[in-house]
């Protein structure tokens, strides 16, 4: 019995587990450890029009049950992603969700147009929430009307469904979710990292060269659960949830909150086998809880009997 297959806009997932963007590169490193075809999907590292070096180092700092990162969207640029990384990934039977980023609207449009033509790219993840880049990103991710307009523009040129990645660094995330829904988004991915900071005990100065960074790991999980709980009741879009997922039990909790699939981020750095391990453990975890299929878990925290998997409450 397949308890794990999930259908989402553009995505026919054999299971709902995928590595989160920025935590898996373009898959090459992890292909040393297991067959990438085991994954439900892969969210590849953000692509921008031009290659980007990113921020100076140090780029990571550890925190209690988490880490701060300030990579700064380092990537080889659209052309190389399309000509080298995506064709390499095509050897695997796994849908690709391409994360796209930029500084201005035209950047996003240019990347969306090109990258969505690739045969194995089945959806885009619109990155309007990277906390580590000085230009762009931030207004797209914090001003509802701007997010709506950008979603609309990207939708116009994209050949595949568009998921919008929401930032938790806002006063009202429900408003942001409603805005991107109004802009025509096909789905939502959430949450990106929370902006944080760590100081060096000896010097008194920030550890990260970028001063601030995005907090990820188990520490952010309760924030992600709360936000998915709120957003999933307010919009009619499927949610791919992320934020501190480490285990099959965490995945089920995200589904309860309202997610329809789950991405695993920081945990890949701790254990390169975490994704296939979760996929292996999910069926028995579901069975123990009395579920025949994982989709029965979506929205269980707020759903009344008979309500569809994702629907406005």
């Amino acid at each position: 019995m397949n308890r794990l297959n999930i259908e989402l806009p553009g995505l026919n997932l054999k299971n709902p587990i995928m590595p989160a963007s920025g935590c898996f590169g373009f898959g090459r490193e992890y292909s040393q450890f297991y067959d990438l075809s085991k994954l439900g999907a892969i969210m590849i590292k953000a692509a921008t029009v031009e290659p980007r070096f990113g921020n100076p180092t140090p780029r990571v700092a550890e925190t209690s049950a988490g880490m701060l990162n300030a990579i700064g969207l380092q990537n080889p640029g659209l052309e190389k992603v399309v000509s080298e990384e995506l064709p390499w990934l095509a050897q695997y039977d796994v849908p690709i969700i391409a994360n796209i980023a930029g500084s201005v609207e035209d950047d996003y449009i240019a990347v969306a147009k090109e990258i969505s033509k690739a045969a194995n790219v089945r959806a885009l993840e619109l990155n309007i929430s990277c906390p580590n880049v000085k230009k762009g990103g931030i207004t797209f991710g914090t001003v509802p009307e701007v997010a709506k307009q950008l979603t609309k523009k990207v939708k116009e040129v994209s050949e595949v469904p568009v998921y919008v990645k929401l930032s938790p660094n806002v006063t009202n995330i429900v408003e942001m979710a409603k805005a991107v829904e109004a802009g025509g988004a096909d789905g939502i991915t959430m949450i990106n990292t929370l902006i944080g900071m760590r100081l060096n005990l000896k010097t008194g100065k920030p550890i990260l060269a970028n001063l601030t960074g995005g907090l990820s790991g188990p520490a952010v999980k309760p924030v992600a659960i709360r936000m998915i709980y709120e957003v999933s009741q307010a919009v009619s879009l499927p949610i791919i949830g992320m934020g501190g997922v480490q285990s099959a039990e965490d995945v089920i909790e995200f589904f309860y909150a309202g997610a329809s699939a789950v991405a695993v981020g920081t945990a890949n750095f701790v254990d390169p086998f975490v994704c296939p391990n979760i996929i292996n453990e999910l069926p028995s975890a579901l069975e123990q809880l009395g579920f025949e299929h994982i989709s029965e878990c979506t929205g269980r925290s707020w759903k009344k009997d008979g309500q569809p998997a994702y629907h406005r409450a």
Partner: peptide
């Protein structure tokens, strides 16, 4: 292992 781009 080269995936996170922290140590470039």
């Amino acid at each position: 292992i080269g995936a996170c781009y922290a140590c470039v």
